[in-house]
């Protein structure tokens, strides 16, 4: 499995919840992916079922931009193995 396929099983399901939530009200056009880290403690295989969770670990605003830091963890419930830990910095620009 390509390592950054974690975009699909770790980042996709968690970030989508945050950024698609109308209550959060983020304009996708103003969204910038600033930084990304991944750790892969164990390999993922085709057919695995993976559960991903995320938490917002920091929010800062400066110069009209909001810096959202998130931490995610992806677990394979079948053997309770952590397969990925990730952190993301997403930058939300104010509407032009």
């Amino acid at each position: 499995m390509p390592p950054t396929f974690a975009a699909v099983y770790c980042l996709g399901p968690t970030l989508a919840q945050l950024f698609m939530d109308p209550e959060v009200g983020i304009d996708l056009a103003g969204l910038i992916h600033g930084e990304q880290s991944f750790e892969w403690p164990a390999p993922v295989h085709p057919g695995d079922v993976i559960d991903a969770t995320a938490e917002i670990t920091g929010i800062d605003s400066k110069r009209g931009m909001t810096f959202v830091r998130l931490a995610m963890e992806a677990i394979r419930p079948a053997d309770q193995t952590v397969v990925c830990r990730a952190t993301s910095l997403m930058i939300v620009r104010a509407p032009a």
């Binding site: 499995m1 390509p2 390592p3 950054t4 930084e35 880290s37 991944f38 750790e39 892969w40």
Partner: peptide, 12 residues
Amino acid sequence: GNANLLSLSCRF
């Protein structure tokens, strides 16, 4: 191989 890559981080 992919299995030997343990971690990766960067700024865009």
